[in-house]
């Protein structure tokens, strides 16, 4: 088990998968901060005054963290930030489900009221957390531009 977790190729693949997911997720938010602000608003979780600030700043953090994970620069810091963001997304989506708010999550495109299942993005984010656990446990030191 230890050898599997520490496997260099597996660790690189997981870094790439999570990194690309975050870079892809940041794209629509960076080009359309207004749509992303609406997505945040739909959750009714964030004070109104903070919504636009988060919409402007968060996508860049997703993009930078994705790049850092892939290239192995600022690795531990970006790993923590990605984990915190994913946990926040899980809590936000779960609370939307608990409050009966139906929406597509706004993860990769603007959230709208929707009858589409909100469970899928929740399961996706939980899957991300499992992958992140592998990165925390892995002792692989290969293919890091700036060391671990």
């Amino acid at each position: 088990m230890r050898r599997v977790i520490d496997n260099d190729i597996l660790t690189l693949m997981v870094r790439m998968a999570i990194g690309i997911t975050f870079i892809y997720a940041s794209y629509y938010k960076i080009i359309g901060p207004g749509d992303f602000a609406k997505s945040i608003w739909y959750y009714h979780l964030v004070p109104g005054a903070l919504i636009n600030l988060i919409a402007v700043f968060l996508p860049w953090m997703e993009l930078l963290c994705g790049l850092c994970l892939i290239f192995g620069v600022g690795y531990r810091g970006s790993l923590w930030l990605v984990t915190i963001m994913t946990v926040v997304f899980v809590v936000a989506i779960a609370s939307a489900i608990a409050r009966g708010i139906d929406l597509d999550c706004g993860c990769f495109k603007a959230a709208k009221s929707s009858s589409a299942s909100t469970w899928k993005p929740l399961l996706f984010d939980v899957g991300l957390l499992v992958l992140l656990a592998q990165l925390y446990l892995s002792r692989s030191r290969k293919w890091f531009l700036a060391g671990r």
Partner: peptide
């Protein structure tokens, strides 16, 4: 590392929202 990544994100966010054709007010009204 966390502080540096967040600082760079804030800087990029501010600049991109100033120059973007799709910019939004930094403080919305909700």
């Amino acid at each position: 590392q966390i502080v540096v990544i967040m600082a760079i994100s804030v800087a990029f966010g501010i600049v991109s929202n100033i120059v973007s054709p799709n910019k939004i007010p930094f403080f919305g009204h909700y």
